[in-house]
Structures are given as structure tokens and as C-alpha cells.
Deep mutational scan, measured.
Amino acid sequence: RYRTTFTSYQLEELERAFQKTHYPDVFTREELAMRLDLTEARVQVWFQNRRAKWRK
């Protein structure tokens, strides 16, 4: 599977959502995914990776 490349707008929005909550529920993820034209799975994985980065 190829690596997803996020646009700067998508990253800004994902980071903004991350500032609000590190653990968005499925509705929040679905809403973000639709708004950013991504799949909910991509959003979920982004948050997993972002939390890992945050913990370091």
C-alpha cells in the first residue's frame, strides 16, 4: 500500500482536532474524514501515529 500524502490544509485540520482531543470518537473521525476527503481509517491511523509522536 502506498503512503498517504496529506495536504497542508489536511494536516492543519488534523492538528487542530488533535489539540482538542487525542482520542476522537468515531463520529468526530468520520466528520473529519468527510471534510478532508480522506477515509476514516486514514484519520484513525494518523491519530495513532500522532499520539505516538506526542508521547515521545
Rank of each mutant, 00 (worst) to 15 (best):
T28S: 14
A52W: 04
R29A: 12
V43S: 01
S8R: 09
A17L: 11
R16H: 11
R16K: 06
A17N: 04
F6A: 05
A33L: 01
F27N: 05
A17H: 07
S8V: 04
A17F: 08
E40V: 08
A41Y: 08
F27I: 14
R1K: 15
Y23L: 06
Y9L: 13
T28L: 11
S8D: 14
K56R: 06
L11T: 14
V45R: 06
R29C: 07
T7V: 04
Q48G: 09
E13R: 03
A33K: 10
Q44G: 11
F18L: 00
Q19M: 07
Q44M: 08
V45H: 07
L36F: 04
S8C: 05
T7I: 02
D25M: 05
A17Y: 11
Q48Y: 14
N49F: 05
E13G: 07
T28C: 11
T7G: 05
R3W: 13
V26I: 10
W54N: 12
S8G: 13
A41H: 06
F18D: 01
Q19D: 14
E31C: 11
Q44Y: 15
H22F: 06
L32F: 02
R16W: 03
T4A: 07
E12P: 02
D25F: 05
N49K: 06
T28G: 06
F47H: 01
H22I: 13
Y23P: 01
V43K: 01
L14A: 00
Y23G: 02
T39Y: 04
L36V: 08
P24F: 05
E40K: 06
K56P: 10
A52H: 08
M34S: 14
Y23V: 05
T39P: 12
R1Q: 15
T21G: 12
D37W: 04
N49I: 03
T21A: 10
T28V: 11
K53H: 15
R50K: 11
T28W: 08
E31Q: 10
K56Q: 06
Q10A: 03
R35L: 07
H22C: 06
P24S: 02
R1N: 15
W46P: 00
L32C: 02
E31L: 13
F6V: 08
T7C: 06
D25K: 03
A17Q: 11
T21R: 04
A17M: 07
Q19H: 07
Y9H: 11
R29I: 09
